[in-house]
Design a protein around this nucleic acid. Structure first.
Lengths: 198, 198
DNA sequence: TTACTTTTATGACTTAAATCATAAAAGAAC
DNA sequence: GTTCTTTTATGATTTAAGTCATAAAAGTAA
């Protein structure tokens, strides 16, 4: 999202994370801007009885955790490496200077936040009032068109596990599995040796 | 959020809305920046069987609907006047010029988006995995500390109806009413002639 | 003060998704 | 190719919240 050159120029450092390593915890105060160089980071919550909710999955080039950094609020979730990863880490004050001195980059960031807010607004309405099948379809279609930018008519092979999908839309795996079966019967999506194609 | 002077300078116009009037519909493309002058606007969704979900309630001084305007996406929800209201309306191109030429204002907007993203992230995790009582408390505490900025030790008289709270956290009125009763019994909140005090 | 509307309240019943148990595939590691 | 782990799958049962019905307060308008 922010170019490597610019990040280096402002003194960003690389952080290496092994799979399952936690980068920051929920309710802690942000001190850095983070952006994925390689690998995959997820932000997630756990309720009292350990049920996970995935706020987002961030891969190469994407930043994460900027909202609380900008709003001066505690992190609303954990950040955990889904795979071995490398991320840029830039001190808050340097990040703010970067934004100030690079208005085009600032606008890019604003648009990123806007897009994320749009995703959250869509998902929260889904989660609060739609059926498992509806929620699942919205999620898959969101990933197809917005994350991977695949045209409607081209097939999309879903890379998410059933558990991950469940955690992204607030359901249990079994419910997701049953919803997938039902959607397949209705020919709304296809299964190719357990992989979902939409 | 953006000062009246600045809005006027860039050619913003006033729009008058009567209670229940709809300013824009879901799935339509944004063309304007909006900011409440007086009254109250809510953004909401309805599922197939008419169940409402309230994305947010915006009162004096607050902007709404900017994310899809910036992200070039369709509105994820309706905007409807909760009371007779007046709002500023500024054309997209003029709004973008305003941001470009007023970096401090741009940063203010970025922070507003960041705060809203924080609210959404918190709420979606709640809605997806917490009990009605937990969700209700989070909502009330959010309004107390973040919307009205009331110190912890001071009492907060909740201005939301049970139906509105239900629609903000994806529950049914009856469930909210029962959760309130239960929280009162546990002395977590008080009821003063049906008004909630926390 | 009365009439009408909206909001709050409560009990009985239903239902969709969670939970629990168990197993078969698929994938990764050696 | 065998072992171990993770993911997918399915049936039976439970349960929390939704639904439905009905009414009492509270608020508003004439």
């Amino acid at each position: 999202m922010i170019s490597d050159d610019l990040l280096k120029k402002y003194g960003a450092e690389k952080v290496h994370l092994v799979k399952r390593e936690v980068l920051f915890g929920v309710d802690t105060l942000p001190r850095y801007y983070f952006q994925v160089i390689s690998g995959k980071i997820k932000m997630n919550n756990f309720n009292e009885d350990g049920k996970e909710f995935i706020q987002g999955i961030f891969s190469e080039g994407l930043s994460f955790g900027e909202p609380p950094l900008l709003a001066e609020l505690a992190y609303p979730a954990y950040a955990e490496a889904v795979a071995n990863s490398i991320v840029w880490k830039l001190e808050k004050s340097k990040f703010l200077a970067l934004l100030k001195e690079n208005p085009e980059t600032h606008l890019v960031l604003t648009k990123v936040l806007a897009r994320r807010l749009h995703y959250k607004a869509t998902m929260v309405a889904e989660i609060s009032s739609e059926s498992p099948e509806h929620r699942l379809l919205k999620l898959i279609d969101y990933f197809k068109t917005h994350i991977h930018k695949i045209p409607d008519e081209e097939p999309y092979l879903v890379e998410l596990s059933r558990q991950q999908m469940a955690d992204l839309i607030g359901l249990r795996v079994e419910t997701v599995i049953r919803a997938i079966k039902s959607l397949e019967k209705k020919n709304i999506l296809q299964l190719q040796s357990h992989k979902i194609v939409r």
